[in-house]
Computed example of a mutant assay.
Amino acid sequence: MKYSNIGSAMSKNLGSRGLRGDSYLYFEIEEALHDRTIPDESEFESVMYSAFEKFSGVSIESTEYRHIERHSHGGMSSGMIAPEIWKNEIIPHLKEIIYGGNI
Rank of each mutant, 00 (worst) to 15 (best):
M1N: 10
K2G: 14
K2A: 13
K2P: 09
K2H: 12
Y3P: 00
Y3I: 02
N5R: 09
I6R: 03
G7V: 05
S8A: 12
A9W: 12
A9L: 11
A9R: 10
M10F: 03
N13Q: 10
L14F: 15
G15Y: 03
S16Y: 11
S16E: 11
R17G: 05
G18F: 11
L19N: 02
R20G: 15
G21W: 04
S23Y: 14
Y24C: 05
L25G: 03
E28M: 06
E28S: 05
I29T: 07
E30L: 07
H34M: 12
D35W: 00
D35R: 08
R36T: 07
R36N: 06
R36I: 01
T37P: 01
I38N: 01
I38L: 10
I38A: 03
I38E: 04
P39I: 13
D40W: 06
D40M: 11
E41F: 04
E41V: 09
S42C: 12
E45T: 02
E45V: 13
V47M: 09
Y49D: 08
Y49M: 00
S50K: 14
A51R: 03
A51V: 03
F52P: 00
F52D: 00
E53R: 05
E53Q: 07
F55G: 03
F55W: 10
G57Q: 05
G57H: 01
G57R: 03
V58S: 08
S59I: 08
S59L: 07
E61Y: 09
E61R: 13
S62A: 15
S62P: 04
T63K: 15
T63F: 07
E64W: 02
E64D: 14
E64T: 14
Y65F: 09
Y65G: 00
R66L: 07
R66M: 11
R66A: 15
H67G: 04
I68D: 05
E69Y: 08
R70P: 12
H71A: 09
S72G: 07
G75S: 02
G75R: 02
M76E: 12
S78A: 13
S78H: 04
G79L: 01
P83K: 11
P83C: 10
E84Q: 15
E84K: 15
I85S: 15
I85F: 10
I85G: 06
W86H: 08
K87A: 15
N88D: 11
N88S: 08
N88V: 00
E89L: 06
I90Q: 01
I90N: 01
I90R: 06
P92S: 00
P92L: 01
P92I: 00
K95C: 10
K95Q: 14
E96D: 15
I97M: 00
I98C: 01
Y99S: 05
Y99F: 09
G100F: 06
G101R: 00
N102R: 00
